[in-house]
């Protein structure tokens, strides 16, 4: 994707910059941008490392397993078809918990495993089942207790209160997730 978007950005802005007489600004923006990457990366590095450390402690304990059990009734409502298969059910809930805890790196492999397990029971291998559509759609939602990356960015920009956005983020992501659940169910009823 970036192989297309990136050159377009560079080409249109440099051509426009040259013809519109904004050359001086364009030149200084190149170095300014590089400086701000360094600044942002150092701040991100600190926050990321700290948070990964805390989350490593969580993954080494039984926290994730306990949370998986709490999630089970909800999983059964959202994915009525996987009820018979406890292995798939477990993989789905592990993926959800990893997402909620903000463990993106752990969530994706777990999610792909769940997709493969669901594919085994799929009759038409070319087409997604209802559970699969729901699973993918929920993974395109970002439901996180602590949105670490944004907090790190805000911190690097010198915010007075980097964590102020946690509550608004919860509201926005949960309402988007409810819309996902609702529209998806409507779509496969009417398809």
């Amino acid at each position: 994707m970036l192989n297309i978007v990136w050159p377009i950005f560079i080409i249109i802005s440099f051509i426009y910059g040259i013809f519109s007489g904004n050359l001086k600004e364009l030149n200084s923006s190149i170095f300014e941008s590089i400086n701000s990457v360094i600044e942002l990366s150092l701040n991100l590095l600190g926050t990321m490392c700290f948070w990964c450390g805390i989350m490593k402690i969580a993954t080494e304990t039984t926290v994730a397993e306990k949370l998986t059990k709490i999630l089970k009734p909800i999983i059964r409502i959202i994915f009525p078809e996987v009820r018979k298969n406890s292995k798939t059910e477990k993989e789905i809930s592990m993926n959800m918990i990893a997402n909620i805890l903000g463990l993106g790196n752990a969530a994706t492999p777990l999610g792909l495993k769940a997709m493969k397990s669901m594919q085994e029971e799929n009759k038409d291998k070319e087409k997604l089942t209802n559970s699969m559509t729901m699973f993918i759609i929920l993974n395109t939602a970002s439901i996180q207790i602590i949105p670490t990356t944004v907090i790190a960015i805000r911190n690097s920009m010198g915010s007075d209160n980097p964590t102020k956005i946690i509550f608004p983020i919860w509201v926005a992501s949960i309402s988007a997730a409810l819309v996902r659940n609702y529209t998806n169910k409507n779509f496969y009823k009417n398809e």
């Binding site: 997709m115 669901m118 087409k127 997604l128 559509t133 529209t183």
Partner: peptide, 20 residues
């Protein structure tokens, strides 16, 4: 998520996600 199981018909997944 769709390429790992090589499905061709992804139905309405993209539309629903973008609406959400």
């Amino acid at each position: 998520y769709t390429s790992c199981i090589k499905v061709k018909k992804i139905r309405f997944v993209l539309l629903v996600s973008l609406i959400a």
